[in-house]
């Protein structure tokens, strides 16, 4: 904790960044924006921090204050690489204060982040418990799966906290807000809720780092990670896609290969 605070303070004092985005040292570990060196004493990090702070990097308010530094556990480091690969981060304008568990790993630029991930986290995999839940659901009958999601989606209030929490959801105009024609009903009812969550997850395929921030942000407790995980698994198995490692990676959807599997095509 001390090392993290000192590193953040140093960046601000030396004016290498104008803002440090971190977690605050209080209950729930909310996001905290340190603009002055003396603010840095309020930074903290531990395993209870579930927000993905890379989501702020797409917001205009933060854009106006570049360069910035972000406190980043491994999944957030991967989000930074995804955003780099998608040309969303102006080069040299974002530094990562890498953390893991209780330890502070150092300050890294975009190239350093990719290097650190390759060296130390190349084997990051989804939690086995999550994959088991996906598998368990797939073993049920289609009607049971439908009933499961019917019960879950009926709780959705369409607050879009899941979208706001995700670093990958940076479109200035989301598909759900397009209304001529309106593709997704915005009423917080069955089919609109279903289409919203399915499309939100699909738009993250090949880009999601399974950080868990969307599910953690959902006030209604929807199991959104099931949707993300099934896509992540398929992207890995079919296309060897591991988003968030290669800053030069082409987007999975948006590129193609003549050898892609199509055994299911008739």
């Amino acid at each position: 904790m001390k090392a993290l605070r000192e590193a953040a303070e140093k960046l601000l004092r030396e004016k290498r960044v104008s803002l440090v985005i971190g977690y605050e040292d209080r209950k729930g570990r909310p996001a905290f924006f340190a603009a002055k060196p003396e603010d840095c004493g309020r930074l903290a990090y531990d395993a209870s921090c579930r927000q993905n702070l890379a989501a702020y990097l797409g917001k205009p308010e933060i854009r106006a204050r570049l360069p910035v530094a972000v406190v980043a556990p491994p999944a957030v480091l991967r989000s930074i690489v995804v955003l780099t690969a998608e040309s969303q981060l102006p080069p040299g304008q974002v530094l990562a204060l890498a953390v893991d568990g209780d330890s502070f790993l150092g300050t890294f630029d975009a190239a350093g982040v990719a290097e650190l991930l390759r060296a130390k986290y190349s084997t990051l995999a989804p939690e086995p418990a999550l994959l088991e839940r996906v598998q368990g659901l797939l073993q049920k009958s289609p009607a049971e799966r439908a009933a499961f999601w019917e019960a879950e989606f009926s709780k959705c209030t369409r607050c879009y906290a899941c979208r706001a929490a995700c670093p990958g959801c940076y479109c200035s105009r989301c598909i759900v807000e397009k209304n001529a024609p309106q593709w997704i009903s915005t009423a917080a009812l069955g089919h609109g809720n279903y289409t919203w969550s399915v499309m939100r997850a699909f738009h993250q395929s090949g880009r999601c780092t399974l950080c868990g921030a969307c599910e953690a942000a959902c006030p209604q407790g929807l199991p959104l990670m099931l949707l993300n995980a099934v896509l992540d698994r398929e992207a890995l198995e079919e296309f060897g896609s591991r988003p968030g490692y290669d800053p030069e990676a082409k987007p999975l959807i948006g590129s193609w290969s003549a050898d892609d599997d199509h055994s299911y095509m008739r």
Partner: peptide, 16 residues
């Protein structure tokens, strides 16, 4: 084709 390969698995999880 890439899109469908992924999308069909997502829909299968939801019972389609």
């Amino acid at each position: 084709r890439r899109r469908w390969t992924l999308f069909r698995k997502l829909l299968a999880l939801t019972g389609i």
